[in-house]
Simulated assay, not measured.
Amino acid sequence: MNEHGAPMEFPNWPQFGDEERAGLLRALGQPGWWRMAGGEVDEFEREFAAYHGAAHALAVTNGTHALELGLEVLGVGPGTEVIVPAFTFFSSALAVQRLGAVAVPVDVDPDTYCLDRAATEAAITGRTRAVMPVHMAGQVADMDALGKLAAAAGIAIIQDAAHAHGARWHGRRVGELGSVAAFSFQNGKLMTAGEGGALVFADDDLYEAAFLRHSCGRPRDDRHYRHRTGGSNFRLNEFSAGVLRAQLGRLDEQTAVREQRWALLRTLLAEIPAVVPQGSDPRCDRNPHYMAMFRLPGIGEQRRNAVVDELVARGVPAFAAFRAIHRIAGFWERGAPDETPDEIAERCPVSEAISADCVWLHHRVLLGTQEQMHAVAGVLAEVLDSSPRR
């Protein structure tokens, strides 16, 4: 119980048990601890692909590398552009820029915080090679509209599914949507080995190209250092894969709990004046809820940050929303469009507003009890009542 009488001991994250211990011991007992000698990575890839309805999965070192590798096999490089949301974690743009391409920020939908269809269409040029929908907080972007745009323009889609393990769109899993998708297993993600990532593919050739490039260009059976392509070493180790196999086994039950808790918490938050929870698109019929997100419109970034600090002080694991990528110094080091930050802000007003007034709660909150959902809403209401808007 905190000082206000609210039970705020949320479940810990990461969660683990005998299954993760068994995975580590399996990896330890193998003849080798890298993927070319062991079997844990291979088994995890088969299980992860099957879970997401994909023909193939490729496990890699982290989610940023997953995006970079996926973009590379789709032909992204110098002289090309990739459309990314202006409101997203920096890695979405960073992966593009690391390949020498230009990351073009576009605005997001004010309800779902995912790529806006009209803004995406307006940003397509003759240099556009791909569009990167980010499934924000587990809410799948409008893949119907974006798929039609991409097909008409002859460009690729790469899904940033770092928040969307197990998500569904019209009953279809991420791997069944026909495009490459990249996942993250960083420590805070819905399943984790501390770090790690994966790509899923519907296309055999793209998968084979990615496999070569993730292993320094070497085929699986190479014994004579015949590197067929460039690339890098993005191989996942056997210990991480052993843990991830166990984490995957936990995902369905955790997702069911989070969906139930968000339905309650969203209703409670919406009853608080000046709080606007993230909306949902009914076509996303399974949302794993990586974050519980809500806006405090008009509050301003400084006051929003103070609210976050007060929530944390009262035992609620709260965070300020991502900074719009064009407001990040690192975005301008290379691969930025020929615009100023203010010019991008003018055409991305929703992203500007969300990054200044949005708060998110860690998904472990949604693994708590129904009583705790009421307690979270009560604490937020108290904090806002005691913090005049400026």
Rank of each mutant, 00 (worst) to 15 (best):
G70A: 10
H52S: 13
L74T: 12
G75L: 06
L149M: 12
H65M: 09
R127K: 08
F89V: 00
I83T: 13
V106E: 08
G17I: 01
L58F: 13
E47C: 04
A151S: 12
R35T: 10
D111Q: 06
D160A: 05
L115Y: 15
G77Q: 04
R117T: 09
P105S: 08
I158G: 04
I83D: 04
H65E: 09
L115W: 14
R35A: 14
A130Y: 01
L24G: 05
D42E: 14
I155W: 02
V131I: 13
A145T: 15
R26C: 11
D144K: 04
T125P: 07
A50M: 09
V76T: 14
S92Q: 06
D160E: 12
W33G: 02
H65Y: 09
E68M: 15
A156M: 02
V41P: 07
A93G: 03
E121A: 12
A141I: 10
T61I: 13
D111W: 00
D116Y: 00
P85L: 05
G70C: 10
G154F: 03
L74I: 07
H65S: 04
A137Q: 07
G17T: 05
H56M: 10
A37R: 01
S91E: 08
A151K: 15
A95R: 00
E72T: 15
G100L: 12
E43K: 03
N62S: 15
G77K: 03
A150F: 10
D144L: 08
A103E: 00
H65G: 11
L67A: 00
E72L: 11
A93V: 12
L99Y: 07
M136A: 08
A66S: 13
A103I: 08
A54D: 01
V82L: 03
L24N: 02
A86F: 02
A156T: 06
A118Y: 03
Y51V: 02
A118M: 14
A130N: 01
A55G: 11
A59S: 06
F90V: 12
A150Q: 04
A137I: 04
L25R: 12
V84A: 00
V60P: 11
L74S: 13
E43Q: 08
P105Q: 05
D109L: 06
P78H: 01
V82G: 01
A50I: 06
G39P: 03
V140L: 13
R21A: 15
V104R: 10
A150R: 01
G100E: 04
V60C: 05
R46Y: 05
L69A: 05
P133H: 08
A49N: 06
A151T: 11
A86K: 01
T88L: 01
G126Y: 00
M143E: 00
A57Y: 11
D116C: 07
G32K: 01
T64R: 11
G29C: 02
P110Y: 02
V131S: 02
H56N: 02
N62A: 03
R129K: 11
D111S: 13
A123Y: 14
N62G: 14
E47G: 07
E45R: 08
N62P: 15
M36A: 12
A93H: 00
E47I: 06
G138L: 08
D160P: 15
H56V: 03
Q159S: 11
A145I: 14
F48K: 00
F44H: 07
E20W: 09
G63Q: 02
A54N: 02
L74G: 09
L69I: 09
